Computed example of a mutant assay.
Amino acid sequence: MKTDETGADAPSIKIYHELMAYKVADILLVSSPYDAFIMEEEGRLSNRIINQYKGLNLSKPPKLTFAFSVKEAFEQLESKPFDLVLAMPGLAGMDVYTFGRQVKEQYSQIPFCLLFHNTCDINRYADTDPESPIYRTYIWGGKADLLVAIIKNFEDEKNVAFDTQNGKVRVIIMVENSP
């Protein structure tokens, strides 16, 4: 391995092709038909995510699969692998936390995130259980930018250890104090 100007080992160009190896490819979005309609109101959500990826010069945007009930969600989970499950409160057939627990019991490797409409929902659905199946909670503001941020945040978490150790990638930690 070559050394850089400080005398430290410099990674070869090959390592840069191995960075960000983990990519989210398939997302299951579980909501009521009404919530799905609201999310799609300003245009196809998938198209908006594709446009966001193009704008950021990213390739291979993830595929969104909708499920409008808990039963349909489990059918989808059985039929193909997903990298991420996003769910909204008000599901047909089950409370969202119970659904999250069942997803975690059967598919422990898939992160389960909640999307709320507004901050009022947080108090209503507050879960203080330290064993909560919820990976993260987000407020849906109607913009595809949030979904891209959720995806990139999860990918970064999966890739940061390898990328910083092998590619000498620098990390910035940002603390946000707003919902």
Rank of each mutant, 00 (worst) to 15 (best):
C120I: 09
D129R: 05
S108H: 11
I15W: 01
I150K: 02
I172C: 08
D83N: 13
R136K: 15
P179V: 12
S178C: 11
M88V: 03
Q109M: 08
N123L: 08
G167Q: 06
V85C: 01
F74W: 04
Y125N: 06
S108A: 14
G55H: 06
S69Y: 04
A8V: 08
N166I: 11
V85G: 00
D26E: 14
K168H: 14
V96K: 02
E42I: 05
M1P: 09
A73W: 01
L115P: 02
A10Q: 08
D9V: 15
Q102S: 07
A161G: 07
N51V: 07
G90I: 03
L84E: 02
V24M: 11
A144V: 07
N123Q: 13
P179N: 09
I139C: 11
E131D: 15
S178L: 11
T128R: 09
M20R: 15
Q109D: 12
N118A: 11
C120V: 10
I139P: 04
M88W: 00
G7N: 08
T3M: 09
Y97V: 10
P33S: 13
L56T: 09
S59L: 12
K2G: 10
L114E: 00
G141D: 14
A67G: 07
L19M: 10
K14T: 13
K143V: 05
A25H: 14
E155T: 08
I173E: 13
L56Q: 14
K23D: 07
V30S: 00
A161F: 12
F74P: 01
K168Q: 12
R101H: 13
L64R: 01
F162H: 03
A144I: 05
G167C: 02
V148H: 00
G90D: 03
D9A: 14
K80L: 04
A161L: 13
V70S: 06
T119Q: 10
K23T: 09
S178E: 15
A161H: 10
Q52N: 15
T137Y: 02
I38L: 15
E72M: 09
K60N: 14
T128K: 12
I13D: 15
Y125T: 00
N159K: 07
I172F: 11
Y16F: 15
S59H: 08
Y34M: 09
F37R: 14
E105L: 14
Y125W: 09
Y34W: 10
M94T: 02
S108D: 12
